[in-house]
């Protein structure tokens, strides 16, 4: 077996041409059957990821818009409720004032009516007292005079006394 010292820099045309032919064939073969599939797969995946990101972004934007709308509605509702509370309070105050005024008026009317009744009762009582006093005075006077006074006389005397008393009281 003979193995001579080899020169790695020795150029050989056969491998040189074979390299170009084989690599050319490989490049064409891979260019037709392999890389388009792989690159399309990667592009599809990329498009899918970008699509998902875009969809997520759109959903986020929509959610943000919805949240803003909700917050706006919530704000409006809060303002409306505050306004209603304010109005209710004002109404309550107004009604309270009205009720108080009505009560005061009613009380004043009742007081006035009571005073009238008291006055009327007082007058009645005074009249009754006067009548009774007159009767009593006549009775006493008749006992003193020892004579019986008739009803007609008694009535006349009472009326005279009353007239006299009324004249004095005036």
């Amino acid at each position: 077996m003979m193995l001579a010292s080899a020169n790695p820099l020795e150029f050989n045309l056969f491998p040189f041409i074979t390299t170009m032919v084989v690599f050319g064939t490989v490049a064409v073969g891979l260019g037709i059957f392999v890389w388009p599939k792989i690159l399309k797969g990667l592009d599809d995946r990329n498009a899918k990821i970008l699509g998902e990101i875009a969809a997520a972004e759109a959903a986020r934007t929509a959610a943000a818009a919805k949240q803003k709308e909700f917050e706006q509605k919530l704000q409006e509702a809060m303002e409306q409720s505050s306004r209603m509370i304010r109005e209710a309070k004002a109404e309550a105050v107004r009604m309270g004032e009205e009720l108080r005024a009505r009560s005061e008026a009613e009380l004043a009317e009742r007081a006035r009516r009571a005073q009238d009744e008291i006055e009327s009762a007082r007058r009645t009582a005074v009249a009754e007292l006067e009548a009774h006093a007159a009767t009593l005075a006549v009775s006493i006077a008749s006992r003193i005079l020892k004579r019986e006074i008739s009803a007609t006389d008694q009535k006349r005397m009472v009326e005279e006394s009353l007239a006299g008393m009324q004249g004095k009281s005036r």
Binding site: P15, V22, L30, F33, V34, K37, I38, G41
Partner: peptide
Amino acid sequence: MTVTAIVLVVLLRWAARSIA
């Protein structure tokens, strides 16, 4: 080189099918 090229194409075709 020739055998490696054939094996390479076969392997990469297999890879391409799994990536597609």
